[in-house]
């Protein structure tokens, strides 16, 4: 699997603050890659270095096989960093034409119209952007990132400020770009549920470092537990020993998935009644809070 982004020991300091602290990360080609982390984790700094807006203090980074700020590599990448703002006197169509020209392309109405349609802005194509909502600006930002038909796009908080239907449409667009058009989409988001639904792979960053990386299923199946509603509870707890934890009126059993059926059989054979058994615990949110040391939320049911 070839990589579209590679960083090695990437470090960025602002005075005494280490925004990135020796980050080594490989983002493979294809699919949707999520970068997660609390505020100050270094996500935006990473993106800004990748886009050539700032330089690293130490370490190396490459995009599409080229060095940062290498125009040949940069031409294969599009981006939207936070909510974009455009000259307010321009229409959406003019913004895309202007950016096409800035990127060395011709003024191609068919191309701009195609991307406006793709992000759902066809009806607003000739409206000045000064009247756009935040959500519309986000959509236009995505179209602007795509206007050069790149192989890689970097999106920072792509659904920020959008209403629920808009968020759903954006999610569908991102997945379609990755799975129908073959683009690699790298996105940062604070919406953990969104990342879980949209991304194929995830990196969790904290304090400028990479703390976990893998596919969403890899991250969410590690550490899951079997939640058992049993009676009598104390007998079942004694049987499980240090593998069991009481959670209210239920018992949480830390056993691998493969051993679940055997455990249930053993409990039944010991005369313990089981009202309910289901796998719980590790959605992406739980992993995120565990890894970043942020405030833990109550355990969530795990689908699957």
């Amino acid at each position: 699997m070839s990589a579209v982004i590679e960083t090695r020991n990437l470090t960025k300091t602002y005075g005494t603050v280490r925004a990135l602290d020796g980050l080594s990360l490989t983002i493979p080609k294809g699919g949707v890659y999520g970068v997660l982390g609390p505020n100050g984790a270094g996500k935006s700094t990473l993106f800004r270095i990748l886009l050539g807006l700032i330089g690293p203090t130490e370490g190396e980074a490459s995009v599409m096989g080229g060095a940062i700020r290498d125009p040949r590599a940069m031409r294969r990448m599009g981006s939207m960093i936070e909510t974009p703002r455009y000259p307010p006197y321009m229409t959406a169509r003019q913004v895309l034409t202007w950016l096409s020209l800035a990127h060395g392309l011709t003024s191609d109405t068919a191309r701009t119209d195609r991307w406006l349609e793709r992000v759902g802005l066809t009806d607003a194509a000739d409206r000045r952007v000064r009247g756009f909502s935040v959500g519309m600006l986000q959509r236009l930002g995505v179209a602007a990132a795509l206007i050069t038909e790149p192989e890689l796009i970097i999106l920072d908080e792509p659904t920020s400020g959008m209403d629920p239907p808009g968020i759903q449409e954006m999610r569908a667009l991102i997945r379609s770009l990755a799975h129908d058009d073959g683009l690699t989409v790298v996105l940062a988001s604070h919406q953990l549920l969104e990342v879980q639904r949209v991304c194929d792979r995830v990196a969790i960053m904290n304090k400028g470092k990479l703390v976990r990386e893998g596919t969403v299923s890899e991250l969410t199946t590690t550490g899951e537990r079997l939640r058992l509603s049993v009676s009598p509870l104390d007998k079942a707890t004694a049987l499980l020993g240090d593998r069991g934890t009481v959670d209210g009126t239920a018992l949480l059993a830390s056993v691998p998935r493969a051993e679940g059926p055997a455990l249930i059989r053993a409990l039944v054979e010991q005369g313990i009644d089981i009202d309910e058994a289901r796998w719980v615990g590790t959605d992406l949110e739980s992993v995120f809070f565990t890894e970043t040391g942020s405030i833990q939320t109550p355990e969530h049911d795990h689908v699957g």
Binding site: L53, M74, P87, A144
Partner: peptide
């Protein structure tokens, strides 16, 4: 308009 972010990469 922060458009440097869009155009300076290319």
């Amino acid at each position: 308009w922060e458009t440097w972010r869009l155009i300076s990469a290319r």
